[in-house]
Design a binder for these strands. Structure first.
Lengths: 252, 252
DNA sequence: CGAGTAGTTGACGATTGTCAAGATGGGTGG
DNA sequence: CCACCCATCTTGACAATCGTCAACTACTCG
């Protein structure tokens, strides 16, 4: 009963126009009027707890989802029982785009911590986008952006060393936290080492060793999930892949 | 002058409704009436020759493109001069979707052989899709499919061995050639070993050795670009990653 | 407080990349 | 038509990165 109260409270109070994520999220670039219309179709349910699935591979597709707080892991189960982690998603990020294709989720999404989401029923979004050119354009852009991000990831997995992969990973979180008004150099990672390794195509042990090594080299301080980046420029050097990282160290 | 004749001939003669690729391409699932309307905005230019760029990273984005004959490689130049091959595209496949995001191509596309394409001006496609729900839906589906394909590729690069990667690569072409009415077991690859290796995240030498090994194991016959798949089921076993490939061999 | 999971560290080995040399083939010009 | 050249491909030897196995530690949660 308490929870029912909370839900209805949220339904009244929370709206895109008041949401701090509006500049990162679907409403990005829409006029206030258009945002209002979009808002009408959005559903806000109760939060998920750590380990809850938002959806599973094979589920019928109804809604896209935007994380509003917390974080989510998407992954696709692969034939031999294992899984491939496809992404970690922070507030403002849209998930479920892969399911449009044949009206069925191809991957699963699970909350890494207590997580709230907005659900956007896709059929309604589609109808709305047909009469709102700005929304249609925004949808095309978001889908295209997703493709662009995936191709960056392909380069990461195809060409980069373990070191470059982890540095890229950390800087990605750094930038995304910064965008969201949090510290770019001091944050908590909500996923396990195992999940990081899986995502980056590395063994857990490699990830662990790299964290230790980065710490030894004063690039960062790490204690479990708490990460403090101490030398962001040098991490960027590492991402570039050239041997410039070492020379940059001696610079300082 | 000969080419001008050919072009005008094509402009009159070639149309989606007559095109054998219609079931693979944008018109897939549209009514004949809708196909007609789509056809009006499509431009068909003269063919590209091997090595010609369809577009380059940084070019302003105007049009999506569908390959109608030949084949195309897409790649993104990465900082240190190298490149990441993002895909090889056959007739009926749509490229340029990554450029919608900020009206600018993020990767380059180059013809691997003599190649013809349909150009679809995106702004017109967007307008048309706003008044043609079926086309809008088709666009969402195609964008979503692209995302799905990219995530499969992420699994390939993140989790699979060299052997599994090459087998997956070969079967992908086998299936796609089959879909297009060609032989699933006897075909020419239009790209070099180097490009295959780059795409699969492997060194050229590894690709070469694997071709030799697959041939030694009677999985295929290969001579330069000409590939004949001799044991497709066993190639599928290899893709699965389990050790079943070996046992499957002793079965036969 | 105890048990189980997650993380760390070390030793070792396998897969794959790198370097180098040689083979093959297609295309061009004499 | 032949010879030559250059790019592509193949093959071998070796090295390095990273994965696997195993033991141990440190949290977390009931």
């Amino acid at each position: 009963m308490t929870s029912r109260k909370v839900v209805s409270f949220e339904n009244i109070k929370v709206a895109c126009k008041n949401c701090s994520l509006a500049t990162l999220c679907l409403p990005m670039g829409l006029t206030p009027d258009d945002v209002e219309r979009l808002d009408c179709i959005i559903k806000r349910g109760r939060p998920y707890h750590r380990g809850d699935h938002l959806y599973r591979g094979g589920d019928k597709f109804h809604s896209l989802r935007v994380i509003t707080s917390g974080s989510v892991k998407t992954y696709s189960p692969n034939e031999d029982g294992g899984e491939q982690v496809l992404g970690f998603h922070l507030p403002g990020e849209l998930i479920g785009l892969d399911a449009i294709q044949d009206d069925c989720h191809t991957c699963s999404a699970i909350a890494l911590e207590t997580t709230a989401v907005c659900e956007i029923p896709f059929s309604q979004l589609e109808s709305l986008s047909a009469i709102m050119p700005s929304l249609q354009h925004q949808m095309y852009r978001l889908l295209s952006r997703e493709i662009g991000q995936d191709t960056e990831m392909l380069t990461l997995l195809g060409k980069k060393s373990a070191e470059e992969r982890l540095a890229t990973f950390l800087l990605s979180f750094s930038e995304r936290f910064k965008q969201r008004g949090f510290s770019a150099s001091d944050f908590f990672l909500s996923m396990s080492r195992h999940e990081i390794g899986n995502y980056l195509g590395l063994a857990v042990e490699t990830v662990s060793r790299l964290f230790t090594r980065f710490q030894d080299e004063n690039l960062l301080r790490v204690e479990r999930k708490h990460v403090q980046l101490l030398d962001i420029p040098r991490l960027y050097d590492i991402v570039q892949g050239s041997d410039s990282a070492k020379s940059s160290q001696s610079r300082g």
